[in-house]
Amino acid sequence: MAVLTLEHVSYIYGEGTPFEIRALDDVSLSVREGTVTGIIGHTGSGKSTMVQLFNGLEKPTAGRVLLDGKDIWAEPKKMRDIRFRVGLVMQYPEYQLFEETIRADIAFGPRNMGLTEEEISRRTKEAAAFVGLEEALLDRSPFELSGGQKRRAAIAGIMAMRPEILVLDEPAAGLDPRGRDAILEGIRAYGKETGSTVIIVSHSMEDMAAYCDDIVVMAQAKVCLSGTRDEVFANAKRLTDVGLDVPQITHLMMKLRARGVAVPEGIYTVEAASAALRKLFGKGHTV
């Protein structure tokens, strides 16, 4: 069941000036409820513009954005409600922290929703737990935290609104591998435990392969490929045509298969590859 749909959406920056840029060109796609969907593409492929259409921060130049089958621009006055339902974490969200404590900052969204104090504090704690921020950190100032911790606090600020659809624009950009895994795990946990739909924008095929059910590939302001993870990665040729690639481990597995090693198809993570090889060569071997 599609929860979020774009219908022939186009978006043009600076229309009618010499600086006109067509960021999205007749894009149609739908996101299945309860899945983790990855949007992948190079810089300038229109990813960041697209996510700002999801919660009505930008209005499409042409086309419609449907949430549960209803056009979100049907009643622009109720846009605030749409934004609570579609929570958007923008790029480098740590620069938007402003309250005196992390706790207050995470509570900012829920407070704007007009929830009771108990509910706010419950949700703040819950959101902090999702991203792995310890209770002791919550009463510190955002400016005393490390970059990775600030990023987690900012993501928790959106999770605390408990959106039905959580959209994250490059949530792991600029983090070290450990921080990246921690954040992506937290996001997956949020999706699983609340049953929410998650949309992640990234340019890392490895992350997408490890965390997403569905993948949308963007290139030159258009959707170039979309479908389940297996469907998309089966099209390795199309991916390399637009300068993207299947994960390196998948490459390795393909090469092994070409040499006659009977590893199964559809392996996208090092863990899965390791398990498959173990199975193939018996328990005694270490891979």
């Binding site: 609570f84 923008m90 900012f108 929703m113």
Partner: peptide, 8 residues
């Protein structure tokens, strides 16, 4: 935009 997304 980021704060609008949080309901400001």
């Amino acid at each position: 935009n980021a704060q609008k997304a949080r309901g400001v």
